[in-house]
Design a protein around this nucleic acid. Structure first.
Lengths: 205, 205
DNA sequence: TTGATGTTTGACCATCTGGTCAGTCTCAGG
DNA sequence: CCTGAGACTGACCAGATGGTCAAACATCAA
């Protein structure tokens, strides 16, 4: 479907430019809210030229989502069953906070997709994502069973990490509006969220 | 702008039908993704008839958002400074879980709006919502200072309650896809989230 | 230089979509 | 049974939008 190997340097560069521009537009407007004209303008190209590099608006969106999932799953994949349980989970939390801070547009693109019922990602969610979560949930459950961390439902633990970290990217404008000026939301969020999971996971007595 | 008092019974009824239908469409498709034809079809009315009751698509959306904020703030407003601190906060959490369970479309409508930068709600967020959060944050801070609950940042405490509870409404399809069949997401979420805040807020020794 | 391949665009099209309007139908109150 | 305000609709419109295409332009190896 998508050209796997861009032939020329110009092709690689322009495809990259378009995806970068489209990421901004899609994440801010949603799929239907975004227009090819907006994307073309943001990329500094004409609309027909954008369509020279991608077959359709749909194709641009698809290319973005495809690239997204791997980066999205990488931090969880890095959770090491052989590591120290609490440290491993806190490291995962920290990575997710950093991702929310550094890639808020990607987070919002993902949020938009799920909000609308994940029409273009269901397969990946039920497949790859679920498989990885199942795997890591088993690891966490074994840690709980061994008394190395408190007994908590591993699935909802993972959901809560997603919820807390992504909230700061997805609801950024609300967070900033409520906090007012003079705050560093992500820095504060980082230490707050780490505190939450430190207390939550402290081994039961 | 909006007719404050519908004159006839038919008017009241049809306006209600349209808002109900529009809530479903807007929350599932976003503002730009929704079309008047979809709303009219869902309401069982013709498009011109829908526009007989509301001046524009914008007006329908506006009517929904207006009604939303009050219901959204009510649970936090009910947090009683004179009550028992931990119980008050846990009661707030419980109410928010129930709202996510019972009004997921409203939650997604709100999420859509914030995700896009809250173009139609900024004023309310910076005004009403911020004021209420400021007020309740002060209450929570005083509880912390008095040692009745652990010392936590009250703003981020409130954000975390929002994040955790709304996640189950907004990301419903993801949660269900990952959990697989045979689960009651909201029931599980309720006890998990209560556990989180019980541990988090247990008074420091 | 030249031809071939890759890149870019102005002009154009079909469809969708929010919205209008003239006129018809409905029905409650007199 | 009238009548007029209220409720409703088919037909239509203008602008936006995704997408096409023939032709022009750039680049580079031979």
């Amino acid at each position: 479907m998508s050209k796997t190997a861009p032939r020329t340097r110009i092709q690689r560069q322009n495809r990259e430019t378009i995806l970068e521009a489209a990421l901004g537009v899609f994440s801010a407007q949603g799929f239907r809210g975004a227009t090819l004209d907006q994307i073309a303008a943001a990329a500094g190209l004409s609309k027909p030229n954008v369509l020279y590099y991608f077959a359709s608006k749909e194709a641009i969106h698809h290319a973005l989502l495809s690239g997204l999932l791997d980066n999205w799953l990488a931090p969880l994949r890095a959770l090491d069953p052989a590591g120290e349980p609490l440290a491993e989970i806190l490291a995962y939390v920290r990575r997710k906070v950093e991702i929310s801070r550094d890639f808020p547009r990607e987070s919002r693109l993902f949020a938009n997709e799920i909000l609308q019922g994940a029409p273009r990602m269901m397969a990946a969610i039920e497949g790859e994502l679920k498989a990885l979560v199942d795997e890591k949930a088993a690891v966490i459950r074994s840690w709980s069973a061994a008394g190395q961390i408190a007994a908590v439902d591993p699935y909802h633990l993972i959901f809560s990490i997603w919820a807390l970290t992504q909230h700061y990217a997805d609801f950024d404008v609300q967070v900033r509006a409520v906090l007012g000026p003079g705050h560093d939301p992500f820095a504060e969020a980082g230490s707050f969220i780490e505190g939450v999971f430190t207390k939550l996971l402290a081994p039961d007595p």
